[in-house]
Amino acid sequence: MILVVDDEHALADTLALILERAGYKSTAAYSASEALMEVEKQRPDLIISDVMMPVMNGVDFAVKVSELRLGIKVLLISGHAGTQDMVEAAGSDGLSLDLLAKPVLPEDLLARVADILDSNYSV
């Protein structure tokens, strides 16, 4: 199960549809708090999350997910140059996160998703 989190509804919805078409089961959430509820309910294998979101950003969200110790993999997507520093800061706290720059071409995203699901690493 893949959980897609983005405050841009259109983006979250289309991504979820693309993943469904590629054969994954997928759900869209539009905020970190909504996503945390979905995590409890559905225990996803992978979360694809935007970084710049109101209330709770993607990096803080990933930290929260890692604290649940459910072995969930996280891929962050961002369209903002400044987010690199946030991700690196999280990295220095021992949390290594995958990051892709927006706009991500669907083919590239699917390739990355397959790679990540094959790997052993999770937050």
């Binding site: 983006l11 289309t14 693309i18 369209g79 903002h80 927006k102 706009p103 071409l105 669907p106």
Partner: peptide, 24 residues
């Protein structure tokens, strides 16, 4: 440039996704 890019990226991503869905 950074500001404009940021504003463009989300709608651009959605449009690319939608086109992909149609094509496939």
């Amino acid at each position: 440039a950074a500001t404009i890019t940021h504003e463009i990226n989300n709608p651009l991503s959605s449009a690319l996704n939608a086109l992909f869905l149609v094509r496939t």
